[in-house]
Simulated assay, not measured.
Amino acid sequence: MKASNSSRELSVRCGKATDGAGKLRALCKEEARRLAETLSFPPHQAAMSVAFWTTDEPSDLICVGNFAKGEGGAVTYGLDFSQTTLWHFCFFEHAEAALPCCG
Rank of each mutant, 00 (worst) to 15 (best):
G78N: 05
E93W: 01
W53M: 03
F67D: 05
L61Q: 04
H88R: 00
A98K: 07
T85Y: 07
E96A: 10
F52C: 01
H88F: 00
Y77L: 14
M48R: 14
L61C: 09
E31M: 06
T38P: 03
E9Q: 14
G103L: 03
F92H: 07
F89C: 00
P58L: 13
T18V: 14
C14M: 10
P43L: 03
T76H: 14
V12G: 00
P58R: 15
S4A: 11
K2S: 05
T18E: 13
A32L: 08
H44V: 13
S82R: 08
E57V: 11
D80K: 12
P58D: 15
E71V: 07
C14A: 13
W87F: 08
T18D: 12
F91E: 03
T18Y: 11
A46V: 04
C28E: 02
S49T: 12
K29S: 11
E31D: 14
V75H: 07
F91N: 02
S59Q: 15
R33P: 10
A74G: 14
A68S: 13
V64C: 07
N66K: 15
Q83E: 02
E9C: 09
D60T: 11
R34L: 12
A47W: 06
A68K: 12
W53E: 01
V64P: 01
G72D: 10
L86K: 00
H44L: 15
V64I: 09
G20V: 13
N66S: 15
L99A: 05
Y77C: 08
T55I: 10
